[in-house]
Amino acid sequence: MKVYTGLDVLVNDTDVQKGFKGNVALLCHNASIDYKFTHAALKFKEIFGERFVKLFGPQHGFATDVQDNMVETDHIIHPYFKIPVYSLYSETRIPTDEMLEGIDHLFVDLQDVGCRIYTYIYTLTLLLEKCSSKDIEIVVLDRPNPINGIDVEGNILEPGFESFVGRHPIPVRHGMTIGEVGLMHQKYWAKDQANLKIIKMQHWKRDMYFKDTGLPWLLPSPNLPRMDSSLTFPATVLFEGTLISEGRGTTQSLEIVGHPKIEPFTFYENHLSSIVKKSKLEGFKLRPITFLPTFQKHANCICGGIQIHVTDKSTYKPWRIGQLIMRELYHYLGTDFKWKKPPYEYNYDQMPIDIINGTDKLRNWIENNGSIDELDSFENLKDYRLQLNEIKIY
């Protein structure tokens, strides 16, 4: 049965629409579309008319056209809608009092990727914190977790490693919809409660991957052009903490990793293939490739590396695979392997790899050539699973 997002439910139900009497604003991006590919802002103009007074954009902008971390977006008056578009990835990640003035209902329609290391869920929780003292209803138009709502994987973020890619103690693969992230924030982390409403999806089931929903995929950020990229993202996003390319500047971004000093077939045949076999990790194939980034890391330099192909989603463990590949590249490249230096996502002091991992222990595991059994010991999810069960709405 076809899945309908929270936006679809709002668009198709006039009784739901009548529940919002005052001025409305919308936080959205490129992927904020209904099942007919119509952008949410167009539907809001149609439904709410002159009561639709403001737009907000997250990281990468309202148009999702800004590429890199810590590249900010300006505030503008939209040339078509003739209303302000405020950037929540600008001089501030928290909306100001001025931005929120005159709003009764602020809708949030953002496609998340199901991974802790992604900023949209933190834009939502910062918004909830800001509006906890205001008479503004936050309305999340819920969307699918593209890598399902059952599987959770990876270490829990440790205190002291919070950042804009990890504000809360959740695992790398968190198993929530963005609406459920809002509910978990309210229940476990918020000092004061915001007025939060979730417009639930219809027909979404927790075991669904995005392609099971029948919904159209539009890139939620500039380097996730394909729905398959969301499957590899929890593995390859780790490499943002290194000078290894994760494929930005190619047509396979966040599905590949590589470096100019790697001869891919030699690396795979003589080294990586036997390590993967010994690890007993399943559900994927690694393919040696050569690629040429056109921007960002190693721009215009030929890189050798590997592409991750998911062959069985039921046994595939992306966080483990990413950590394993990272460990092998660290020791294979030797002095040519470099950790990225600060700043990263507005953290100017800690190693980017540590704030991505939410701990420094995984970097030490990599440098000390730790075992897969040791890697497994970082994953302690019993308490988190109990929390997740408390806030599930599907």
Results as ranks from 00 to 15, higher is better:
residue 2 K to N: 12
residue 3 V to H: 02
residue 4 Y to G: 01
residue 5 T to W: 01
residue 11 V to S: 02
residue 15 D to R: 10
residue 16 V to L: 14
residue 33 I to G: 06
residue 33 I to Q: 03
residue 39 H to F: 06
residue 51 R to I: 12
residue 62 F to Y: 04
residue 63 A to T: 10
residue 72 E to F: 10
residue 74 D to P: 11
residue 77 I to H: 00
residue 81 F to P: 08
residue 83 I to W: 03
residue 89 Y to L: 14
residue 91 E to V: 14
residue 100 L to D: 11
residue 102 G to V: 12
residue 102 G to A: 07
residue 104 D to R: 03
residue 121 I to K: 00
residue 126 L to P: 00
residue 129 E to D: 15
residue 134 K to G: 11
residue 139 V to C: 03
residue 140 V to M: 01
residue 140 V to K: 00
residue 141 L to V: 11
residue 146 P to M: 11
residue 153 E to M: 08
residue 164 F to C: 07
residue 168 H to I: 14
residue 174 H to M: 05
residue 178 I to G: 00
residue 183 L to F: 02
residue 187 K to R: 05
residue 188 Y to G: 07
residue 200 K to Y: 08
residue 202 Q to S: 11
residue 203 H to F: 13
residue 208 M to N: 04
residue 215 L to T: 12
residue 223 N to Q: 07
residue 224 L to Q: 04
residue 225 P to I: 14
residue 230 S to K: 01
residue 231 L to P: 02
residue 239 F to E: 09
residue 243 L to S: 05
residue 254 L to K: 01
residue 254 L to P: 00
residue 258 G to N: 02
residue 260 P to A: 14
residue 264 P to C: 13
residue 266 T to I: 14
residue 272 L to R: 01
residue 273 S to F: 09
residue 279 S to V: 08
residue 287 R to I: 15
residue 289 I to N: 02
residue 303 C to P: 03
residue 304 G to R: 01
residue 312 D to P: 03
residue 315 T to E: 06
residue 323 Q to F: 10
residue 332 Y to P: 04
residue 344 Y to F: 15
residue 349 D to R: 05
residue 353 I to G: 07
residue 357 N to H: 13
residue 362 L to Y: 04
residue 364 N to F: 15
residue 367 E to M: 15
residue 379 E to R: 06
residue 383 D to T: 10
residue 390 E to V: 10
